[in-house]
Amino acid sequence: MNKFTGLLLTASLSLGLLGCDGSVDDNSTPVPPTPSPTPPTLSADVCYLMNTTKGNITLAIDLTNMPITGKNFKQYVDKSFYNGTLFHRTVNNFMIQGGGFTTGLKSKPTSAAIKNEAAIGISNKRGTIAMARGQASDTATSQFYINVLDNSQLDASADKFGYAVFGKVVDGMDVADQISIVKTTTIDGFRDTPVQEILINSVTETSCPAA
């Protein structure tokens, strides 16, 4: 498996996000947990201003319903991990993905992988932020993606683990849309890579907008 976090397009156009954080070869057949029948509404517990070379995106992160995933993102922000990383994969009418590579597509060392909380049941709707991961369920580390369309095919179900949504864009979705339509190419097997690098300059805590 390519070390790069990629996007798997099957013959049926079913889309999945693959994590790069090590070659994952899951030969077992674990049973996905049953998704919650009444998924919670996303909570805005902490907000971050993500400054990129395309503009600003403000994210509200749910630490209440998604404690593992939300706190994982927070700890990366707290140590300035995302500063200087790329939106390294952009797919029009699907998603934009970042948080794992620096300029020149150099992989950045991460903390340990986390448990997949997708079964909590929050859907991959337009404007939500979720974790990319490897082929196995509990393999997400630092990489995330922002959905630019509703992508329910990425949700957990009775037969798939899904991808854990842990927040949403509360301002700057127009910037995410612009990132999603930039010209891309393939570089050394890295597909859907922006021809002109899109940098995350900084991610800093900010006030959450009034409910």
Rank of each mutant, 00 (worst) to 15 (best):
residue 141 T to L: 09
residue 134 G to C: 05
residue 169 V to K: 08
residue 156 A to G: 13
residue 179 I to V: 15
residue 136 A to K: 12
residue 79 K to E: 08
residue 195 V to R: 09
residue 187 I to Q: 11
residue 132 A to N: 02
residue 79 K to A: 11
residue 172 G to M: 05
residue 103 T to E: 14
residue 151 N to C: 10
residue 66 M to F: 04
residue 102 T to R: 10
residue 119 A to E: 11
residue 192 D to E: 14
residue 177 D to Y: 06
residue 72 N to Q: 08
residue 160 K to T: 05
residue 106 K to L: 13
residue 189 G to W: 08
residue 162 G to L: 14
residue 86 L to I: 10
residue 189 G to N: 13
residue 179 I to Q: 03
residue 74 K to I: 14
residue 83 N to A: 15
residue 72 N to Y: 00
residue 70 G to K: 03
residue 185 T to H: 13
residue 109 P to I: 08
residue 151 N to S: 14
residue 78 D to I: 06
residue 148 V to P: 00
residue 136 A to F: 10
residue 173 M to W: 01
residue 119 A to G: 06
residue 153 Q to E: 13
residue 199 L to R: 11
residue 147 N to A: 11
residue 185 T to Q: 15
residue 189 G to T: 09
residue 160 K to D: 03
residue 82 Y to W: 10
residue 153 Q to D: 09
residue 140 A to L: 03
residue 73 F to M: 07
residue 104 G to V: 03
residue 129 I to W: 02
residue 151 N to P: 00
residue 80 S to P: 04
residue 176 A to H: 02
residue 66 M to C: 02
residue 163 Y to H: 14
residue 67 P to E: 02
residue 168 K to E: 09
residue 95 M to E: 07
residue 174 D to P: 08
residue 170 V to D: 01
residue 78 D to W: 08
residue 113 A to F: 05
residue 88 H to K: 04
residue 130 A to K: 02
residue 173 M to N: 03
residue 183 K to R: 10
residue 183 K to I: 08
residue 89 R to P: 00
residue 69 T to F: 02
residue 138 D to T: 06
residue 133 R to M: 07
residue 85 T to I: 07
residue 170 V to Y: 06
residue 100 G to S: 11
residue 151 N to I: 00
residue 93 N to D: 14
residue 152 S to F: 12
residue 175 V to H: 14
residue 152 S to K: 13
residue 133 R to D: 00
residue 167 G to Y: 02
residue 186 T to C: 15
residue 158 A to P: 01
residue 171 D to F: 06
residue 160 K to F: 02
residue 143 Q to F: 11
residue 152 S to I: 09
residue 100 G to W: 00
residue 149 L to V: 15
residue 71 K to E: 15
residue 81 F to H: 01
residue 161 F to P: 00
residue 64 T to P: 12
residue 159 D to E: 02
residue 132 A to L: 04
residue 82 Y to F: 15
residue 132 A to W: 00
residue 170 V to I: 14
residue 146 I to G: 01
residue 80 S to F: 09
residue 101 F to E: 04
residue 75 Q to F: 14
residue 100 G to Q: 05
residue 192 D to G: 05
residue 85 T to S: 13
residue 129 I to M: 05
residue 194 P to N: 07
residue 66 M to N: 08
residue 179 I to C: 12
residue 126 R to H: 06
residue 184 T to Q: 11
residue 182 V to D: 01
residue 136 A to P: 05
residue 153 Q to L: 07
residue 67 P to C: 12
residue 117 E to R: 06
residue 158 A to L: 13
residue 199 L to A: 10
residue 66 M to I: 00
residue 65 N to T: 12
residue 131 M to N: 02
residue 97 Q to W: 00
residue 163 Y to I: 04
residue 110 T to A: 03
residue 122 I to R: 02
residue 70 G to Q: 05
residue 194 P to R: 09
residue 76 Y to N: 07
residue 160 K to V: 01
residue 183 K to Y: 04
